[in-house]
Structures are given as C-alpha cells and as structure tokens.
Design a protein around this nucleic acid. Structure first.
Lengths: 171, 171
DNA sequence: GCGAGATCGTTCGCTTCCAAACGATATTGT
DNA sequence: ACAATATCGTTTGGAAGCGAACGATCTCGC
C-alpha cells in the first residue's frame, strides 16, 4: 500500500518540505526527485558507517578495500581498471587501496603477460580467507538494515536504484 | 509491474547472483538484502560524482560543504553538533568543512550565548546567495538522474530508503 | 618501420573523512 | 564548595577520494 508511513515520519517529512518550499519561495522544485536523491545519500552513508563500524573495523578494512577484495574473491584476478570500475572508485584511489591491501598481504600485483602497461591484481589465500570470514556477517547485517522491508520491497528498491544507475551510464 | 527489467539487465544480474552463489557454495546468502544494499551504494556514489562534477565543481564546493550550506540556508543558524548530524558527517569532519566555508566567506562561527563550549554557525549573505544560485540547477539534475522513474516510483524509492534509515536509528 | 596519438597505472596536491586523544567548559554528586 | 564526570569543538594521524599531470607502453596510420 502506498503512503504507509508512520505518522511521525510523515509529519516530519511534510514539515521539511514546507520549510524548503518556504525558503525558496520564488522557485518551484521537483520534490519527488529531491526526496529520492537525498534519501539515497542518507541511507548510503548510514549503512556504510554501520557496516564499517560493526563488520569491517574488527578486520581493519575500509569499505573500498573490502569491495575490492570481494570482487577479487568472487571473480578472481582482475586488471586494475576493471577493479576500479567495479568498486566505483577512480584509478588514483585504487592505487592507494591496493598499496594498503598489498602491504597487509591480502592481494598482490603482477605484471600483465603481454601488455607492459597493465597490472593484474590477484587475491592471496589470506585475502580469500578474510572475505569468507567477513561475508556471512556482512550479509547478516545487510539483512538487519533491510529487516523492515519485505523480500519484494528489497528487490523493488534494487530495481529503482538500477534505473538511476542506467540513466547515469548513458550520459 | 514487478520484474520489469530490461532483459540485458536481468541476465547480467542473474549471472552475478550465480557467480556469488558459486563462490560461496557452503553458505546461503540473503540475496535481496545483498542486492538492495549494494545498489544503494552504487547509486549514491554515481549520483554524488555526477553532482560534484556537473553542479558543484564550478562553485568549488564539495558535497558536504554544499549540504552544510544548504541546511544553514533553509533552517538558519545551527549549532555544530546539529549541523554535523544533519549533514551525516562527524564532528571532526565538520571542523574541516567549516574552516573551508569560513575561509571562503560562506559561513561564520559565533560563540554560544550561555555555553562557552558550543559554537553557533551562521550563513553569510554570500553563502545564502550561492545556495540560491546552485539549488535550481541541483534540483534539475536530481530530476535528470531520476528521469526514468515515475513520480510514484520516486516517492516509493524515498519511502523504502527511509525504512532503512529508521531501522538504523533504532539500534 | 616509425612518429603521432591513445591508453595504462602511478604520482601529486588537495580535500574529505573517521576514530581517538585532547583541552576547555558545564554539570553532577556529595 | 569542589572533585568527578560528562559534553563540546578541535586537533591529530592515517586512509580515502578526486582531477590533473606524468612517464611508460602500446596502436594506428602511413
């Protein structure tokens, strides 16, 4: 059912909407877009902080370091550019993350067989083991933060977000 | 209608699901939670990068700096701790952001009337003017990135995300 | 072949970001 | 009254993060 807010939630929301409208009284805003985007951020930072605190910090791993390691664990050795794209970070940032990962023995850079410019990143046994140890806990917390959503809602959420991603890809 | 993916999208998705399942064949995962959470991040970073590039960088403002300035513009002077909470950053980070904002003349710190520890942050006229200038463009881009979603979809998206936020608040 | 241009990872300068430690100020218990 | 405790903003140290500039390497046109 649409509009199934808690009344507190809805009141606070409408108040914020009024405040913003009032603040910019000369301009009409697209509120559904504003609310959608701003909530994507609030949710992302809240979940990220939660995960880093509850799941990742015991292993001294940052979010990005874990994502990179996860990709290596599931799909095996990758080239740097693929890795950066899948982790959603730039090449410059990946260099730093890889330094950390390599220093701590989770991954290893190797030269490409035929192309002297490229680098292939391999997970180490320790790296794979660490992901295997973290992943169940991580997934459990993913279930916790989405506990108020039905399975259908979660898939719907993922679908709506992919629509945004697709739109940004094609720009 | 549920499941209204493009077929390419869906195929890629199912393949990724198979890959992950195969990689961790001893453990069953909650996939709807995994997909929901991971897409929240992909979308957030993609939109954030887009906004910083297209809207904020001409004004030399970071995302956080803009959020803080926006809060000051709409709700007026705030104390530091409120500001940090609403911007989704820690106190230490806010100090740095405020230094930048103050240096560039967008905001100003003033001592609290009765409590010598606290600081009240005020927007300057220049700060308000800058937000007024950016906000229409920002909102226009919010509309662009959510262009493939109906108005109903956008509100549904915001609702689902708020459910996650509420869950994290009450932990 | 071989020079022009593209592509790759790294480096650089700068900002953001967090957790933890720190001083300064308030509040509380006794 | 006054020590113990709590709270506030800042500082610190280290990792992320970006865009731009850079050298090294490859590709393409001729």
């Amino acid at each position: 059912m649409p509009g199934a807010f808690s009344s507190d939630d809805e009141r606070e929301l409408r108040q914020a909407e009024r405040d913003v409208t009032h603040a910019f009284d000369t301009q009409p805003f697209d509120f559904s877009a504003l609310l959608a985007v701003s909530n994507v951020f609030r949710a992302a930072t809240a979940v990220r902080n939660h995960m880093e605190r509850e799941v990742l910090s015991p292993h001294q791993l940052s979010w990005s370091a874990f994502v990179v390691l996860f990709v290596l664990r599931v799909w095996g050795a990758r080239e740097s550019n693929e890795l950066a794209a899948e982790a959603g970070i730039t090449g410059g940032t990946l260099t730093g993350v890889l330094s950390t990962l390599e220093r701590r023995g989770f991954a290893k850079r190797k030269p490409h067989a035929t192309d002297g410019r490229r680098v292939v990143v391999h997970p180490t046994a320790k790296g794979r083991r660490t992901v295997d140890q973290i992943m169940p806990v991580f997934n459990h917390h993913e279930a916790i933060v989405t506990a108020d959503l039905s399975d259908h809602d979660r898939r719907e959420l993922a679908r709506l977000l992919r629509s945004i991603l697709r739109r940004l890809d094609t720009e």
